[in-house]
Simulated assay, not measured.
Amino acid sequence: MERYFNVGKIVNTHGVKGEVRVIAITDFDERFTPGNQLYFFKENDDQPEELTIKTHRKHKQFDLLSFESMENINDVERLKGGNLKIPESSMHELEENEFYFHEIIGCEVYNVDGELIGKVKEILQPGANDVWVVQRQGKKDALIPYIESVVKSVDVQNGSVMIEEMEGLLE
């Protein structure tokens, strides 16, 4: 069975002409190119519905999409709260030192001395660089910036990350 990965979450409808407001969860804007196929998953349902993108435009911090054969608000109202996904076979090859979120989340984080710090539980994208949220045993979460001076190596095969601790990073 093919695995699917999130590229967006439908948070609301937009207007009366069948557009939906999407929070993108992808670095590849071309995922929303008209004519492309996305798979819609409603919460707690693992049966995808194939959708073909008719239009795409940006509005504030959202991507606005409309789909083939969905002409008005009544057609798209049911999509609210669902996720837009792509099959694993549609994923792009990444450059060296680039990773998909699902490859990093769950990795164990060690310092250069080999001490376990915790596990990556989430990735934030505040601006200049990604920030990995590392859940630590008995301590508050650590925020690790994904920059060369901190992240020394990533081994997705073995689920491990090695970091160089900067002063104050883990406090």
Rank of each mutant, 00 (worst) to 15 (best):
residue 2 E to A: 13
residue 3 R to P: 02
residue 4 Y to D: 04
residue 5 F to K: 04
residue 5 F to T: 04
residue 6 N to W: 09
residue 7 V to Y: 03
residue 7 V to F: 04
residue 8 G to A: 01
residue 9 K to D: 06
residue 11 V to D: 13
residue 12 N to S: 15
residue 13 T to C: 07
residue 13 T to P: 03
residue 14 H to G: 01
residue 16 V to G: 08
residue 17 K to V: 10
residue 19 E to D: 01
residue 24 A to W: 00
residue 25 I to H: 12
residue 27 D to M: 03
residue 29 D to S: 12
residue 32 F to N: 00
residue 36 N to D: 12
residue 36 N to M: 06
residue 39 Y to M: 10
residue 41 F to M: 09
residue 42 K to G: 09
residue 44 N to M: 12
residue 44 N to A: 11
residue 45 D to Y: 08
residue 49 E to H: 08
residue 52 T to H: 07
residue 52 T to W: 08
residue 56 H to E: 15
residue 56 H to P: 03
residue 60 K to Y: 08
residue 61 Q to C: 02
residue 64 L to D: 00
residue 65 L to C: 05
residue 67 F to N: 09
residue 74 N to P: 01
residue 74 N to Y: 13
residue 74 N to W: 10
residue 77 E to I: 07
residue 79 L to D: 13
residue 80 K to A: 13
residue 82 G to L: 05
residue 82 G to C: 05
residue 83 N to W: 07
residue 87 P to G: 12
residue 87 P to D: 11
residue 88 E to W: 09
residue 90 S to C: 09
residue 90 S to F: 04
residue 92 H to W: 09
residue 94 L to V: 07
residue 98 E to C: 09
residue 99 F to T: 11
residue 100 Y to Q: 04
residue 102 H to M: 00
residue 104 I to Q: 04
residue 108 E to G: 00
residue 108 E to K: 14
residue 108 E to A: 12
residue 109 V to T: 06
residue 109 V to N: 02
residue 110 Y to P: 00
residue 111 N to H: 06
residue 111 N to Q: 02
residue 119 K to D: 12
residue 121 K to I: 14
residue 125 Q to P: 04
residue 128 A to F: 09
residue 128 A to M: 12
residue 129 N to P: 02
residue 130 D to A: 15
residue 131 V to Y: 11
residue 131 V to K: 13
residue 131 V to H: 10
residue 133 V to R: 10
residue 133 V to G: 07
residue 133 V to L: 14
residue 138 G to D: 14
residue 140 K to R: 15
residue 145 P to M: 05
residue 146 Y to H: 15
residue 146 Y to A: 15
residue 152 K to Y: 01
residue 154 V to N: 01
residue 154 V to S: 03
residue 156 V to S: 12
residue 159 G to P: 05
residue 161 V to W: 01
residue 164 E to H: 13
residue 166 M to R: 13
residue 167 E to D: 14
residue 168 G to Q: 11
residue 169 L to K: 14
residue 170 L to R: 01
